[in-house]
Every structure is written in C-alpha cells, then in structure tokens.
C-alpha cells in the first residue's frame, strides 16, 4: 500500500494566499487584461482630461478639472478591473477548469472569495496607476482627496466585481470581456464618467441616475465636489451590488448543480 498519508481538509475551504498569488501571476500574464485595466484608463485621462485648459480651470472645492476627470477615469479603471476579475469565471468554465476544481477540496464559496479578492487587487492597482499618472501630468486634487477619492473609487468597484461574476456565470463565452467592454462603456457614459450627465439633456440625466455606474461616480468624486446626494448615491451602490450578487448566486447555483 502507498505510504499512509495524513488526510485532512484544508482550512477556509481552500481559500489561500498561495492560490491568490498563482492566480495573480496568471492574470498579469494576460496582456489584454493588463491593457484593459491598467493602461487604458490613464491613457484616456491623458487624451481627454489633461489638456492645458483643463489644467488651468480650477474647481470650487480645490483641485482642477483635470483632477475631476482623473477621478472619473480611476472609477472607470476600477470598474473595468473588477469586472474582468469577476468575469474570469466565464473563461474557466469554458475551459472545464471549474469542473477540475471540483476534484479538489476547494469549496465553491472559497473560489468565489478568491475571485473577489483578485478583482479587488487588480482594481486597486488600476486606481493607483491612474492616480499616479495623473499626479505627474497636471491633475490637482486637495491632498486628502487623493486618498479619499481613490479609496472610494476602489471600494465602490465591488459592485462591478459582483457584476463581473454575474456575467461570468451568465455568458458561456471565452471572450466575455469583448461583450462586456462596450457594455461598460455605455454604463460609464450613463454614469457620467466621460461627460457630466446634465450635459446630455435632463431626460437622459434622470434616467442615468438609476444606472449602476452613476452612484459610484458620485461617491468617488464627493471628496472633491461635495455635491449631489450622498445617501441616494450610496443607496444606488447598495441596491446594484445586491442585484448583481443575487444574479451571480442564482447562476452559480445552477452551474454547481449542473457540472
């Protein structure tokens, strides 16, 4: 007989730093993800937000318009990053990897937790890179706002980690990001990340307030602008997080039952 092996279940259902480390390494290897989440947002900022007039135009609460655009782009980046983090499950399901993982002690809940942590890690990297690039290219924010806006953009991006998971379980595609990219762009428009929504007409502005990105943008820019209703924005974030989480759980249950 084979040597006697101590058999026990791993702690935390298999959730471990070792797995997160390996998954991160794989994610960084994927150039599309890196370009999408880390390169694109600062490039957008440089293209659309760092002109001389934006740099010279001051905001009431301190900082310049370039800084305002930068925060929006940080939100955009965090959103792309967390969505693609969550949506990784789609590729893994298509490859039969989810099935393979079911031949290990990893519990489905621990798998989801790993994906959420990964999504939030690349979300953080995306936000930090955008802010650092902005800081060196003329964006100005009140000192505290650098930290506050960054943190809020990052924390609120949890909505999109849930969104990514939901889509990852909903769309049985290897190229889920090619579908989600345009969807996120539209949501970003509606959420006022590219153009303030009131510039797009009052009807549009009223509808836009109910879309998932709107609240996140409002909250992230609040330390800078101190405008808008923070409570309504927070409600929007909470409700959308709940909607996407319930959706993800629903699809996830079906998925686990089927495989």
């Amino acid at each position: 007989m084979t040597a006697v092996v101590e058999r026990s279940l791993p702690r935390f259902g298999g959730f471990s730093l070792g797995m997160i480390g390996l998954e991160l390494r794989r994610m960084v290897r994927n150039r599309r993800t890196v370009v999408f989440t880390v390169v694109m947002p600062p490039v957008f900022y440089l293209l659309f937000g760092s002109s001389a007039s934006y740099r010279s135009e001051r905001l009431d609460g301190g900082g310049n318009v370039a800084g305002y655009v930068l925060v929006s782009m940080a939100v955009y980046g965090a959103m792309l990053a967390t969505t693609s983090g969550g949506a990784m499950v789609s590729v893994e399901r298509a490859a039969g990897w989810s099935r393979q993982l079911r031949l290990t002690p990893l519990l489905p809940g621990a798998y989801i937790a790993v994906k959420l942590v990964l999504a939030m890690i690349i979300g953080a990297v995306s936000v930090v890179v955008a802010l650092v690039v902005g800081a060196f290219t003329g964006a100005e924010l009140p000192a505290a706002a650098w930290v506050e806006c960054g943190l809020l953009a990052w924390v609120c991006a949890l909505v999109f980690a849930a969104f990514g998971l939901f889509m990852g379980y909903l769309l049985p595609s290897e190229n889920v990001l090619q579908i989600l990219g345009p969807v996120l762009a539209v949501l970003s428009f509606a959420g006022g990340l590219f153009v303030p929504v009131d510039q797009l007409g009052s009807t549009f502005a009223r509808i836009a307030a109910f879309t998932p990105v709107y609240g996140v943008g409002q909250i992230a820019r609040y330390p800078l602008t101190h405008e808008g209703n923070l409570w309504l924005a927070a409600l929007s974030v909470v409700v959308w997080t709940a909607v996407f989480s319930v959706g993800a759980m629903w699809r996830f249950r079906r998925d686990t039952a089927r495989v």
């Binding site: 070792g18 490859a95 290990t104």
Partner: peptide
C-alpha cells in the same frame, strides 16, 4: 484524469501542479 479540458492555457505546467498542491495543502 478526465478525458479532456480541465486545464487553463495561460498557466505553466509547474504552476498548474503547484496550484493543485496549494488546494490540497
């Protein structure tokens, strides 16, 4: 050992086995 699938293209051979080891502790 399953028939097909169950592997991720963008892991190396060594990483795939290491991940399995991590999961089994």
């Amino acid at each position: 050992v399953m028939q097909s699938g169950g592997l991720l293209k963008d892991y190396t051979v060594g990483e795939t086995v290491r991940l399995t080891a991590v999961l089994f502790g």
